[in-house]
């Protein structure tokens, strides 16, 4: 019998919301500067552009480091803490470097009813990593995620911006193999 474990234990002692540093300042490419200027015309306030600007930044720089947060805050005349709060609130802004392929397996009710728990085990075993981790070659990151509005293909996952499913233990293994081939 497995003793009950406090689900909170894994986050005790950590920083409130850890964000890693890239070690260098960032600046939008000329194209994104243009896109950013256009973006501002779509909203009556600068602050409203926080989410889309972060999206652009994540697209260009890969993830939202402390430098990215400071840059976005500066562009939008906001205190960096505001942008930091926003980054911490939403699940899709990465605060650390991610693998080339980000697998986010749904562990909400419909996917779990259809065997998502087994799929998670298969993924962990196949990739040799746990949730919140990236394979040593930097190719694949694994996370769990809440309902992605694709319960008709449960159990399913999101891989970057694609949806994949329904998985069986066999097909999820093949899926990982395909990703590895794609990444070569």
């Amino acid at each position: 019998m497995q003793p009950y474990q406090n689900p909170n234990l894994d986050i005790a002692g950590r920083d409130a919301c850890p964000v890693e540093s890239m070690g260098h300042a960032v600046r939008f490419s000329d194209e994104n500067q243009k896109r950013f200027a256009e973006l501002l015309t779509r909203y009556p306030t600068k602050q409203a552009a926080v989410l889309p600007t972060l999206w652009m930044a994540q697209e260009e720089f890969g993830w939202c480091s402390t430098e990215v947060i400071e840059y976005v805050a500066e562009l939008l005349d906001l205190p960096p803490s505001h942008v930091y709060g926003v980054v911490s609130f939403y699940t899709m802004y990465y605060r650390r470097p991610m693998g080339k392929y980000h697998i986010q397996l749904c562990t909400n009710i419909s996917c779990m009813l259809m065997g998502g728990e087994t799929i998670l085990e298969c993924l962990r075993e196949k990739l040799g990593i746990g949730l919140g981790e990236t394979t040593p070659d930097g190719l694949i990151s694994l996370d769990e995620v809440e309902c992605l509005a694709a319960c008709d293909i449960a159990p399913m996952c999101q891989m970057n911006d694609e949806y994949h499913g329904p998985f069986t233990p066999e097909s999820v293994g093949q899926f990982v193999d395909q990703l590895r081939a794609r990444g070569k």
Binding site: C17, V19, E70, S81, H82, Y84
Partner: peptide
């Protein structure tokens, strides 16, 4: 300077790193 970061029961007061 001060902000609440994170959601739900993990919400916490902090400053920007």
């Amino acid at each position: 300077e001060l902000r609440i970061v994170n959601r739900g029961y993990r919400a916490e007061i902090t400053t920007f790193p």
